[in-house]
Structure formats: C-alpha cells, structure tokens
Design a protein around this nucleic acid. Sequence first.
DNA 1: ATTCTAGGGAGGGATA
DNA 2: GTATCCCTCCCTAGAA
Length: 102
Amino acid sequence: MPSSFPMTGKKIRLFQFLFEMLEDPRMASFISWVKPSAGIFQFSAQNKDELARIWGQFKGNKKVMTYQKLSRALRTYSRTGEITKVKRKLTYQFSLVVLRSL
DNA sequence: ATTCTAGGGAGGGATA
DNA sequence: GTATCCCTCCCTAGAA
C-alpha cells in the first residue's frame, strides 16, 4: 500500500514501488528479499498477479495489470541495468547503484 | 497436452 | 514539431 499518489509530486517508478513493497513486512507474501545485501528479490508464485494488480491500480490503469505485463517492464530495466534477471524462477536483482539510491 | 515463465515488438501518454 | 522516457498491451517460445 503505497503512501503517496502520482498526482502530487513526481511520478513513482516501478522499481521504486517494488522496493517499497519489499521493505514492507506486510507484503512478504507477495514479494520478498532473497539476499537483501545484493538486492536480490523474488515474487511469490501464488501472489505475483495480485501484487501486479495493486501496481496497476496505483498507476490508475484502465486494464488489470498482470505479472506478465509487469515483468515486461522489468525486462526493459535490464537494458539500463537498473534491474537484471537472475537465473532463478521469479527472481531479479537491483543494481547496487539503484539500491543505494532507494 | 496444458500451464507457467521468459523474451521482445509495437505503441501510447507524458515530458524534454 | 521531434526525440526520449517509461511503461502497457499483446504475441510467441521455452520451461515445468
């Protein structure tokens, strides 16, 4: 449950949203750290679509957000290196530069 | 064979 | 107007 809305202040980015969720213990059943010190995290196989739905709702999208669509955005992060895929199911890694900025 | 996860093309609203 | 950013939507392929 993000605290601020995009209408006021600058727009939140997907990776910032994910980081906030990771830092919230109540969201542990949706997304959780695998190795926090390395910025490695994973989505819950069971609740990843519910987390995506929350993201889409937060952004005010018309259609329902899904993990499939959310993960497409994560793939574009690999171009800039902000987040990369680790060779493990549903797990990704923040770059250390991004991690320090969050 | 069916379901789930990963990858990429296309396009759109917002912004510089 | 033009270019770029940051996703969103959809389709295909590969893994389980």
